[in-house]
Computed example of a mutant assay.
Amino acid sequence: MIRPTSLLSGLALAALLALPAFAGEFTAKSVTIPELKAVFGQVESSNVVPARARIGGTIRSIAIQEGQEVKEGEVIAEVVDEKLALQRDAADARIKQLNSQLDNAKLALDRAQQLLGRGVVSQANVDQAKMNYDVAVNQVTAAEADRAVIEQQSSEGSVLAPATGRVLSVPVTLGSVILAGETVGRIATGKYYLRLSLPERHATQIRTESTVLVGRRGMSTSASGGVDAARPGRIVKVYPEIVDGRVIADVDVDGIGDFFVNERTLVWIPVGSHDAIGVPAEAIITRHGVDYVRIAGADGPLDVAVILGSTFEADGKPLVEVLTGLRDGDRILLPEDAQ
């Protein structure tokens, strides 16, 4: 017959052998961590510049499409006004006419000067011929200037990209008739940023230079990867005006140049802080769906049931927040394989 005392001793020994060996300690201490709120941020471009036609006419060619990258000064479309060709021909004909008159005025002036030398005509006749010659010269100069204006207008049919960036939209098609100043394309230039629209109650908690966490592409937590996989960003501007009960803020973050303009993604922003106690993930023991942490008690190791929260960093180390079960200063026992 097995004695009860021997049976209890055997069960206790087996239970001790089944537990992991603990060799290290971690002192739990209360730290202040920020409270994060998940909101949607919308990708914006610092500037959206319209590429406008400088003359009116018909679009003969378009060299851009939505999403294309363009450089400043690049020809993105050609606008043709057929009336300019007719005006140029008319200007050429007028210049020929005035050149003929100039030649006649030059001959008349030379003849008058020769006759003046022989004493046949008076000085008044020479002065009149000189005036007619000067008028002809000025008329030719004015006609050539008019033709230069027409040439300049013809060259302005080339629509140039006003800045380097990505084409957002092309609101015209081949053969479209447009007026001077109409938009041929919209180009997003400069660095991309995230624009946040927050409830008014967070107005006093949003600060410039505060750090935020930006999720990956996608509007759900799973698609954005959660807080752990988010990239850091920085609030660079908080607008002083509240619009429709919302506070507007801009976030600077690297690596969003391949996002679509107006694309939305999750952003976690600090809206407050609270004191929390954290422990390393390896200190958590899960048995039958309940989480425990082994602490060093006065009478030896003691398993304490805990309720866990989110993960945060303290002193560069990842910790799991313990909502209940621990106190500041508790000595947490760490297993040997965690050392």
Rank of each mutant, 00 (worst) to 15 (best):
G233F: 07
A230T: 09
S220C: 03
R264H: 07
V290M: 11
V293S: 03
A314C: 07
A314L: 11
A249D: 15
D275G: 09
L326F: 06
D244R: 14
A314Q: 14
Y292P: 03
R287Q: 14
G297Q: 05
G325F: 05
P232C: 08
I284D: 01
V236C: 07
S224M: 10
V320F: 04
G245P: 03
L302P: 00
G297R: 03
S210K: 13
G272F: 06
V251T: 09
V293Y: 01
R246S: 12
G225D: 04
G272M: 10
I242Q: 08
V253S: 04
E282G: 02
P280N: 03
I295Y: 00
G215K: 02
A281V: 10
G272T: 07
D315H: 09
V267E: 13
G218F: 06
L308D: 06
G300Y: 09
P232W: 03
G309D: 00
L266Y: 02
S222A: 08
V236S: 11
D258K: 02
R217H: 06
P318Y: 13
D291G: 01
R231C: 00
L308K: 14
D258S: 08
V261N: 15
V306E: 09
D315V: 02
F259A: 02
P240S: 05
A305W: 06
A298Q: 15
G309L: 01
